[in-house]
Design a protein around this nucleic acid. Structure first.
Length: 769
DNA sequence: AATTGTGTAGTTTTT
DNA sequence: CTACACAATT
């Protein structure tokens, strides 16, 4: 019976899947079928009569958790093994047991924006100049400390006994105050979820045993990315029954900068000496050419145990290094290459991915891909839950759920405007501090605060009363509550009936949040709770939203690419200073450069059939164009160099002329303006229909539902309906100029005005189409 | 009190 | 270049 789950595995895979009791370390190289092994192993355990309730699987991303759950489901229908991310698992635990660390069960999970707000407050309370001590940097230090399991007390101890820089002196004072602020707010930040849980387990032997007994079989994915806190949590729970299985690959450790410790692998073997170690080295994903190239790169890491990358796959095409003049040509060249892959290799849009080291590289790419009408999705952009309206409304919900939430209170007390300005707010905060009450309580009793203006007193009281009524209304449907909040606060009033792009967006965002809430209501069913919804929103990320088969090319950072695979991969900007990144090379820091090498390795090993790296001769960053230096990694890996510079740019130039009215970028001005425009009669392949890039929203990812698609700046034609952010809708009544100086004249509907724009400069968007 | 302008700083960021 | 925080306005 169990054999059915492990029959078709290779011997090492099978050995891993059939190992049930005792600690197990699976070292799984890229493309070695790790997820397959892990899910089979769970199925096999179930087949051996282990109760699903005793199994706990922990991943780092929601996506990985979802995928794993789905695959276990399909192997053993009807199972409910708890597969969760570290943070979600800890959140659940803290809701139940958090009292011991000073948390009430309705604690809020703060996003980075709120954290910054809190730090700002603390800094000013302690009379630190936030100009000299940027909240970001302080927060970073605190986060690092938390990842290393240093509580404020331990941090101070350590500081006392070491030399330390002056940052430590600052953090030493700020960290405890920040932590106090958090607890007063009944709130945690992301790192706290782990830190509190680890402390709870460390200080509470009974809890350790309870959980150890409940989760007798624990599985941790991407183990090389665990930090000290995560290690301690897992080790504490597995201490008793010792059925801990971890999977990882030291070569894919790319989160060292976030506190991840590869050493946790060595430590695992030390703490669990009876560990069985299994290596999965056969690669089922990539061609030989890709693997050889990636291997040639990674062997340059000195801090590394030798590991082979083997495959029975075909030799495949050589890895190509495409070299361009600048990023414009790079983007165009990639577009062209993608079309070729579609035409000649029979690939689809969704088979192609483009990776880059820094998000800022995606912008130019996006613009060009749009012009070239290549459908794409970006795993980043403006995150849905980062938008102001969303965060405002979520703050309302958070304050309803957790009246102690200071960040939420301050964010919304004057939104929409209620005439409760900074001065009044500061007085309220001071008074609440003296009285030891929450800001909301202080607002309710504003008449007791001496220095407040009459207007402010009334405003605060009205606000508190409104929140009071919201709390009463907050049972059942989250969507209904949210609608109620929007309604009563008149949050959208300022945008209603205003015809401009921004107002339109704001309203759409609000609608989308309501949708997300409604979908949450449906999924949660009788389990529905405001807290559940808030937790969901706090713990989802941008990368969760990328769809596997969206019919679009996928753009993302190298970090986000981990765990994915694509038939064709482009890694752009393989240049010194980008990969390896400038910051990693400071002080000759070998360790960080090795992490950069692993990052490129991860990117390369995502590719199944075709792998392209690109570099340019000049690159613009921070508004400055600089000649580039080749990445030292390029001399290590094996590739074929292909020059596609401006000189060889005949075909590139042709491509940019394909679309009528598509403006040239100024960079490509070598195209004479007076040259007649070539209008290709042959339209792009059928599959090249201008599919809008789906900037899938966070709302959609909550449910996996469809995407909203913004309008594309396609070519403009006479009579074309367009929208301008300031002037609104209009009609193109004239087209003039060529190349970079292409202009359109638009007659606007609302204002009787006609304006002429240089197409390449104006924020005009086509409507309808 | 809210809008407008000016300065600064800018990897990666599973959660 | 561009986003964002803070200062200087009316």
């Amino acid at each position: 019976m169990s054999a059915t789950f492990t029959d078709d595995l290779t011997p090492p895979q099978r050995a891993a899947a059939e190992h049930i009791h005792g600690p197990l370390l699976i070292l799984a190289g890229p493309g070695s079928g790790k997820t397959r092994v892990v899910t089979r192993r769970i199925a096999n355990m179930l087949a051996h009569g282990i109760s699903q309730r005793q199994i706990l699987a922990i991943t780092f991303t929601n996506k990985a958790a979802g995928e794993m759950a789905e695959r276990v489901q399909s192997l053993v229908p009807g199972t409910k093994v708890w597969i969760s991310t570290f943070h979600r698992f800890c959140a659940r635990l803290l809701r139940q047991y958090g009292e011991a660390v000073g948390l009430q069960s309705n604690f809020s999970i703060l996003d980075t924006g709120d954290q910054k707000q809190g730090i700002r407050r603390v800094l000013s309370d302690l009379d630190f100049d936030p100009l000299h001590y940027s909240p970001d940097k302080v927060l970073w230090r605190i986060s690092t400390a938390k990842n290393d399991l240093l509580t404020p007390e331990r941090y101070q101890e350590r500081f006392d006994s070491s030399v330390g820089d002056h940052w430590q002196a600052v953090v030493r004072r700020v960290y405890p105050a920040y932590q106090k602020w958090l607890l007063e707010s009944n709130a945690v930040d992301f790192d706290d979820l782990l830190l509190h849980t680890a402390n709870l387990l460390a200080e509470n032997p009974e809890l350790r045993e309870t959980l150890g007994d409940r989760y007798r079989y624990i599985l941790v994915d991407e183990y090389q990315d665990t930090n000290i806190a995560q290690y301690q949590i897992v080790a504490a729970m597995a201490q008793r029954h010792r059925n801990l299985c971890v999977t990882g690959d030291p070569d894919q450790s790319i989160y060292g900068w976030r506190g991840a410790r590869i050493e946790n692998i060595l430590r695992f073997e030390r703490d669990f000496p009876e560990t069985k170690t299994i290596r999965l080295e056969q690669n089922f994903r990539s061609t030989q050419a890709i693997l050889e190239s990636a291997d040639a790169l990674i062997v340059n890491n000195t801090q590394r145990k030798h590991k082979s990358l083997l495959t029975d796959n075909t030799a495949g095409e050589p890895v190509q290094l495409l070299r361009f003049e600048d990023s414009q040509h790079e983007a165009e060249g990639i577009s062209k290459q993608i079309r070729q892959l579609l035409a000649e290799d029979g690939l689809n849009w969704s088979d192609v991915a483009i990776f880059y080291r820094v998000n800022s590289l995606s912008r130019q790419l996006e613009t060009t891909l749009m012009r070239q009408r290549i459908p794409f999705q970006v795993a980043a952009g403006v995150a849905f839950y980062d938008r102001v309206e969303i965060r405002d409304l979520l703050a309302y919900l958070r304050l309803i759920d957790n009246p102690a939430d200071q960040a939420a209170f301050l964010r919304i007390v004057n939104k929409p405007l209620r005439g409760l300005g900074k001065t009044s707010q500061d007085r309220l905060v001071a008074w609440a501090g003296q009285q030891g009450v929450t800001l909301l309580e202080a607002a309710a009793r504003a008449d007791k605060i001496s220095k407040l203006s009459k207007k402010a007193v009334l405003g605060f009281k009205a606000f508190a009363g409104m929140l009071e009524r919201f709390s009463l209304a907050s049972s059942g449907s989250v969507a209904d509550l949210l609608t109620h909040v929007v309604d009563k606060t008149r949050y959208t009033a300022a945008w209603q009936g205003i015809e401009n792009e921004q107002a339109y967006e704001h309203l759409a965002n609000v609608d989308e949040l309501v949708n997300a809430a409604r979908q949450y209501d449906e999924i949660a069913g009788s389990e529905v709770s405001l807290q559940g919804f808030l937790e969901q929103t706090a713990l989802v990320s941008d990368t969760d939203k990328i769809q596997d088969d969206a019919g679009r090319v996928t753009l993302m950072t190298l970090h986000a690419a981990k765990g994915l695979e694509f038939p064709a991969v482009f890694v752009i900007g393989v240049e010194d200073g980008l990969i390896p990144h400038e910051r990693s090379k400071r002080d000759g820091n070998r360790k960080e450069v090795e992490e950069e090498r692993r990052l490129l390795f991860v990117g390369m090993t995502r590719a199944k059939q075709r792998l392209f790296l690109t570099e340019t001769r000049v690159r613009s960053l921070h508004g400055k164009t600089m000649p580039t230096i080749a990445s030292p990694f390029l001399t290590e890996l094996i590739c074929e160099k292909v020059d596609c510079g401006t000189f060889g740019g005949d075909t590139l130039a042709a491509w940019s002329r394909v679309m009528q009215g598509v403006p040239f970028d100024e960079d490509s001005q070598e195209e004479p303006d007076d040259e007649p425009q070539i209008i290709e009669s042959s339209s792009p392949p059928a599959s090249a229909q201008p599919v809008a890039p789906a900037l899938t929203t966070g709302a959609a990812l909550l449910t996996g539902a469809g995407a909203t698609a913004p309008r594309l700046p396609l070519g403009f034609a006479m009579g074309q309906q367009v929208r301008h952010p300031r002037y609104g809708r209009g009609t193109v009544i004239e087209i003039g100029g060529f190349g970079p100086r292409r202009t359109v004249t638009v007659a606007f509907a609302d204002s009787d005005r006609k304006e002429t724009f240089v197409v390449s400069k104006a924020p005009l968007q086509p409507v309808g189409n």
